[in-house]
Amino acid sequence: MEQTFLMIKPDAVRRGLIGRIISRLESKGFHMVAGKFIVLPEDLVEKHYQEHEGRPYYQDLISFMTSGPVFAMVWEGDDIVNLARLMMGPTDPEKAAPGTIRGDFATRMNRNVIHGSDSLKSAEREIRLFFSEDELVRK
């Protein structure tokens, strides 16, 4: 059983989309094993997005991700990393098909409502950044 890290971003939280996004993941048969509503400190956002440092959009990304609360989550399911990414759709909402989370809810590239780990390795790193082992609920 795989785990992945997903985070509902400030734009989606402001728009009241947490429940609708979670409902889609639950309907697919995935299980949330941790979740927290948090305003991210800048140092955590910088660690999370370290691979983007130096890119033209980096400062805007940091400002956006610290602009309001997010809902950080750990989800569990078979092949969840790949399937969750399919459900989210491409990072660019203009390329995201209707029926995907970004296709239905995102408004522009740097305001794309949700983050999802892109690999099992990334998922492990991101889960450790945001959650301690005792915050994960085991069956």
Rank of each mutant, 00 (worst) to 15 (best):
M32D: 04
I8W: 03
D118A: 10
L17G: 10
D60N: 09
D118C: 07
L40H: 04
R55Y: 00
D104M: 12
V74N: 01
S132C: 10
I101F: 01
K95T: 02
K95P: 00
K36A: 03
A72N: 05
N82P: 00
K139F: 08
M1R: 06
R108W: 04
R138W: 14
E42V: 13
S63R: 15
E133N: 11
V33Y: 06
V81W: 14
T66G: 01
P10T: 01
N112S: 10
L120A: 14
N82M: 11
S23E: 12
Y58A: 06
D118G: 15
M73H: 08
S122A: 15
R102S: 02
E46K: 15
M87E: 09
K95D: 01
F5K: 05
G35H: 08
S67W: 12
G29Y: 03
S132L: 12
F30T: 08
I22Y: 14
V113D: 00
L129K: 09
Y49F: 03
M88E: 06
R111G: 05
V113E: 00
I18A: 15
V137E: 11
V45I: 04
D78I: 08
P10C: 04
G68N: 06
Y58D: 02
V13M: 08
E42S: 03
I101T: 09
E42K: 14
K28N: 10
F5I: 04
R108L: 07
V81M: 13
E51V: 11
R102E: 00
S122M: 08
P10K: 00
R55E: 03
S27N: 15
T107K: 13
K139Y: 08
Q3A: 04
P93I: 01
V70F: 12
